[in-house]
Every structure is written in structure tokens, then in C-alpha cells.
Simulated scan of single mutants.
Amino acid sequence: MRSYSFICGCGHSGTSLLANMFASHPALYIPLIETNCFLVRAEARSRWKALRAEARASKLKHFAEKTPRHVRRISLIRRLVPDARFILMVRDGRDVAASFIRRKGSAEIGARRWLADNRLVRAEEGAPDVFVLRYEDLIADPEGALRGICEFTGFDFASEMLRFHETERLWFGVPELRRGTGEDGVQHALLRNWQINQPIFDGRGSWRDLLGPEDLALFDEDEARQMLAYFGYV
């Protein structure tokens, strides 16, 4: 294969949307699940070997994979996949926290995970094999963002990527295209799958209607406030 790309970053930051755009590329193979291939270090080598064989069997030129938590395994992936490219998704932490309310019933869980995972993104930014993409920039200019990513990863932009929603796909092992409630488990998978099969939905600033004063106080803490500012969020 000509290229290997990994989409990762904090969950609820647009990784699934970007992955479904990738799935529309006619020369690219991407599993319609989060493989978690590298999360268990002792199993990573054998699991990657099997996943790579699956990709090669597709006869397509390029490979991509999406597991948000692989942001915590970038060094390991570099060792096992020397030519790997990483697209690290970033989103306003307040919107991430708001999204976690539906799934976990708690903004704090989302805020803490956002902070932990984006420490890793921040540490990787500027590396030659890393492309940091803000969810907000993908929403504002999908074609521009996708062209930049394609150039970085080494495959040609395809207009089908902008028409991702015209082909129904069942991600995360769900049996049907149905809007779930978003609660953790099957309902969360159903909702995510339904969302990424729709035309682009602008979720920027949803925190304004969903977060209360106690939730917003999480982002008044020094590190969280600095992280927001670092990635361009006022």
C-alpha cells in the first residue's frame, strides 16, 4: 500500500465524521469500526499484522484507521508502522464536554478526557508525521480541510469525500441506520452512526445551551483555560 493514516484524538472531536469522509474515497480502505489495534501493547504487533493483511486484501492503494484513543499510542504505532501519518482531531473542549453529557451524563468526564488527550496532541503538534485538524475548520471549509489532509497523507483529493452522506454505511457494528439516544453502549453507537450518515451538522458552540455554571467552571481552571487558548478557542 502507498500510505497508512491514523485518525485519532479525543473522542467527540469529529473523528467519526472525518473517518466517514475517508471511507468515501475510492482508493482508500478503512475499517468501519474502531479497531483498538494498538491499545494492548502485548497484542499490538500481531493485531497490526492481521489488520494490514486485511487492508492489502482490499487491493486499494491507501489505508486509514480511526480509533480516538490511539492518540495515546503514537510512539508505538511509529515503531510498528514506520511510514504512518497521523491526523489528530481537536475540538473546543466545552463542546466535547457537552457531547459527553448525553453519553455519560457528566460534563466532567468529557472535560477531563479532553484535557488528558489534548496534552498529547499538543506535544505532537509540529512533528513531520502529524497533521492537527480542528473540528471547527473541517465544518467551516470541508473541501479545504480535506485537500490539506490528502496532500499530507499522500493521496489525491476525491470529490466523493464531500458526498460521504450519499452512501449509507453501518459503522461500529450497528445493524441498521437508526438514530439512537446517545446513551453509552449500543444507543451511543447508533447515534454516532446516524450522525455521520447525515450531511454535515454544525455542532460548533452547542455548549452554550448545554453547560451550566458548574460545568463551565471546569474550563476556568488554569490548564484547561490555557489549552483552550492554545488551540484558538476564546
Rank of each mutant, 00 (worst) to 15 (best):
F201R: 15
C150H: 06
A229F: 08
A97S: 10
T153C: 14
V40G: 03
W171F: 15
R208L: 02
K66A: 06
V90W: 02
R112M: 04
E176I: 05
Q226R: 15
R78L: 03
R179P: 00
I77F: 00
R113L: 13
I74S: 03
D83F: 07
R169G: 10
Q187P: 01
V81I: 15
R73K: 13
E65D: 15
L88W: 02
G93C: 04
L17K: 08
S3W: 00
L211E: 02
S206G: 12
N197K: 11
I139E: 06
W48A: 03
N193T: 14
N197D: 04
A145K: 02
Y4N: 10
D215T: 10
A23E: 04
R103I: 05
L88C: 13
M21G: 07
D92S: 07
D156P: 15
T35C: 11
R163M: 01
H62P: 05
D92C: 08
G205L: 05
W207M: 02
E124M: 14
R45F: 00
V81E: 06
M227R: 13
A224M: 03
K104E: 08
G14S: 05
W194F: 15
E143N: 11
A123T: 13
I87M: 07
L17Y: 01
D220F: 03
L120C: 06
E221S: 12
R85D: 01
S13R: 05
G205S: 10
I196Y: 07
V174G: 07
R52F: 00
A98F: 03
C150I: 03
N118T: 07
N197W: 02
S24G: 13
D141R: 14
K66H: 04
D137M: 05
E168M: 14
P199F: 03
L39R: 12
L28N: 09
M89L: 14
L39Y: 07
E223A: 14
P213A: 15
E108C: 05
R41N: 11
A97V: 07
A19V: 03
L190E: 08
K49F: 08
M161W: 02
D137S: 14
I149G: 04
D220K: 15
I149T: 11
G185W: 00
L17A: 14
R178I: 09
L18R: 06
V40N: 13
L88Y: 04
A84W: 00
R69L: 11
R73P: 00
W194D: 08
R41C: 01
D202Y: 10
L39Q: 08
D92N: 15
G203C: 09
A229P: 10
F86W: 10
P82A: 08
L146I: 10
G93F: 00
R78K: 10
E34L: 03
G203K: 09
A27K: 15
M89T: 12
R56S: 06
Q226K: 15
E223V: 14
C150G: 07
E136I: 06
I101F: 05
M227Y: 05
E54L: 14
G105S: 09
E221W: 07
A189Q: 12
I109F: 12
L138I: 06
C150S: 03
G232K: 11
G232F: 02
D202N: 15
I196R: 11
F6C: 12
E125I: 09
F152V: 10
V71S: 05
A98E: 01
G173L: 02
E223L: 12
A23K: 08
H25V: 07
L146R: 06
D92P: 04
G144S: 11
P199S: 09
R178T: 08
L228K: 11
D215F: 06
